[in-house]
Amino acid sequence: MVSQHEFLAQDDPAFQSFFQPGATLERISTGYIWVEGPVWLDDISELRFSDIPNNRMMTWSEEKGTRVFRQPSQRTNGSAVDRGGNMVSCEHGGRCISRTGKDGTYEVLATHWQGKRLNSPNDLVVKSDGSIWFTDPPYGIISDHEGIRADSEIGSNNVYRLDPSTGEVELVAGDFDRPNGLAFSPDESVLYIADSGRARGHGFGFDDSRPHHVRALEVLDDTKLGASSVVADIDMVPDGLRVDTEGLLWISAVDGIHCYTPEGRRLGRILIPEVVANLTFGGSNGSRLFITATSSVYAVETTRKGAERA
């Protein structure tokens, strides 16, 4: 365990109040290659996450500890819970969006856009109307480390909206380099999307000429995106992100979790001793922050709660 004075870096004194008195950073599970895609399932009080290169999904709970949930897992990356309590996931290996029902049933929801196979869906969020918004960078096809090496059929890296009732996949943003994590504001008027273009992918290092920021895009008519602006420029490269009930952004980056206001002011960081991939809120009251970082999963109690879809 790591004490508060060791893992918190404050830009604003208020950041200290976002954590329970005496809160510690705890490593709750370890032994992975590259751990990603944490999602909390409230119905069963379990955290699921992916060990992508090992092609498996794991599950963790206070009562039972860590177990294998699915192997092989099609190198699943980001996941979320839909309106029915089912898990929807981005698969690098399957190059698709899938759904795992509460009863264990599995189905593929989308594999193509305009007749062309998706690159490697990376992360997603479910809107209150049930639509699934997801990013599709090439990280799962540029090498065999996180997916299966292949050429892109689409030729670009985009953000899409999937209507699960019709199966229609609609492009909502085509001007990103490598779109990654995403999250809606609490009232769903804004969609935040990370662009991790600076990170070239496994073994390819960094390209300083490419983007490393989070953009805020206006949501129009529930199905389209409008004007956008950069709200966080993170040199350490943003990856996953979540929004709490008061609209603050919690963004994973190489060195830890960065917390920003919607206006773009950084309040502080949670420093993690491994390269961070993603995060999610969960636990019995929704205020425990789970962080996936290279070989381990970490957790810390906060005074915040993740924003939920109405």
Rank of each mutant, 00 (worst) to 15 (best):
S3M: 11
H5F: 03
H5G: 04
L8F: 11
D12Y: 13
A14P: 01
S17D: 11
P21A: 07
I28A: 04
V35R: 00
V39N: 09
L41G: 14
R48Q: 15
R48N: 09
P53Y: 14
W60A: 13
G65K: 08
P72I: 12
D82P: 06
N86S: 15
V88Y: 08
V88R: 02
G94L: 02
I97H: 09
T100W: 14
S120V: 04
P121H: 07
L124Q: 01
V126F: 10
V126A: 09
S128T: 08
D129N: 12
D136F: 08
G140N: 06
I142S: 01
G147L: 00
V169C: 01
R178C: 03
L182F: 06
A183N: 13
D187Y: 06
S189Q: 08
V190L: 14
R200M: 10
D207Y: 01
D207R: 00
R210P: 07
T223N: 07
D233H: 14
P238C: 15
D244C: 07
A253I: 00
V254N: 15
I257F: 12
H258L: 12
C259R: 11
Y260L: 11
T261P: 02
T261N: 14
R266W: 14
G268R: 11
L271Y: 05
I272A: 08
E274N: 02
L279W: 05
G286A: 06
F290T: 07
S295G: 03
S296P: 02
S296R: 03
K305G: 01
